[in-house]
Nucleic acid binder design. Sequence first.
RNA 1: GGAGUGUUGGCAGAGUGGUAAUGCAGCGGAUUGCUAAUCCGUCAUCCUGAAUAGGGAUGCACAGGUUCGAGUCCUGUACACUCCGCCA
Length: 431
Amino acid sequence: MLDIKFIIENIKTVKEGLAQKGYTPEEINIDELVNIYKNLNKLKTSSQALAEEKNKLSNSIKSSSAEERPAIIAKSKEIGEQLKKEQEQLAKEQQKYDNIMWRMPNLPCPQSPIGPDESGNVVIRKVGTPTKFDFTPKDHVELMEYNNWSELERITKVSGARTYAIKNDLSRLELAMHMLVLDKLAANGFTTITVPSLSKQKPLYGMGYLPFSQDEIYYMPADDLYLSGTAELVLNSLHADEILSENDLPILYAGFSPCFRREAGAAGKDTRGLIRVHQFLKTEQFVICKNDINESEKWHKKLLSISEEVLQDLELPYQVLEICTGDMGAPKYRQYDLEAWTPSQNCYRETHSCSNITEWQARRTNLRYRDNQDGKVKFAHTLNNTGIATPRILVPFIENHQQADGTVRIPAKLQPYMSGKKFIGKNAQQS
RNA sequence: GGAGUGUUGGCAGAGUGGUAAUGCAGCGGAUUGCUAAUCCGUCAUCCUGAAUAGGGAUGCACAGGUUCGAGUCCUGUACACUCCGCCA
């Protein structure tokens, strides 16, 4: 959500930002919004004048004589009815206003590349080189079948398409990766927190999942609850409606949770294997910091560097992508994605997504803090980034680290989390 | 699932139909030669306004209702706590 006063003072900038994000004036009409806002304030001013008059009458009753009272009460009732009418009109206008405001995306960063869709994203660096094999490599599904690591066909009988069951050392590897990342985040000052995957509706609006991505969300009508697609959803609303002290900031969370996505818009895409599934595990980095763009940009870079370190610990070749204005989601101010080299697809595939949301979410959740300098209450900035998401990361991991005999090498940083094993797979011999 | 009690600022806590006490913490300032104390100020949202001057409206979990007037009375909802039942 944006600040209406900022919008009014920066109409041109706002219109340009919306256009860069791919919104047409038909979708979000700024001039209409400003008119509604002005009309709303007129209605507020006049209804408040009525309320003032009514309050004065009510307060005078106590000190008035018995003879005067009936006339005052009658007058007060009459104003009350008039007031009620104005307030009904006000509520209608307010609804129109809210409807636009809740659909308004965040404005993009001036440094973000401008582009219509993913074709406008910019590779800002590549780390490592795509793995070369002196044998014919298997893809991740073949590797899993060869090593008895999965139950991909059977599990669809139970849970349907886009679900997975992995077993033996691959299952242990999945959990080991989360522990590696949780340890790394704890060492960086993050609070480890395991959170529910269940959410009421309000946090979905707070994060920006609603009204933008309705089709993506599982809903359980019997309990009026939603399944969370990311711990970000829960962490973003954990401090909703609070006024924190600036001294409490920054708040750093390493949130772990099962995540659920309907993948409604991805029919036919990535149907093979572990890349795109309905349920997965994610350790999420989430930051609440001061309302200062330099401060949140600093944290944005920090979150990115932590994820890069994760991919480096896993010894995966990857590239850093700066996401362009048209490919960013509505909530985002600036976004980097990390993509790991995936041999079977001969390309880089997304493993991490790192975003600075600035105050857009905090306005929606009413998450504020008191500034030490001027004593004023301000909206916090929020940021989020994948810590690690499984099983997707297992795809580049086992494909890049596979050996000619079908075993998979475990990088040194991960070995302590895998009982010291250097290789896994049915042909693995531990030295 | 059943019964009971409760929800007031960052926190604690008064307020039983007539303008929301007070304390603590935080922050800003002043002052003092003793690791801190004292004093003053500040500490929700919105409208009006050039204003960080003034005026006004709203705000006691949320949504309604009764009333000239609701933190207070009534109804519903959410949440918390206690007890019972069930349970990994």
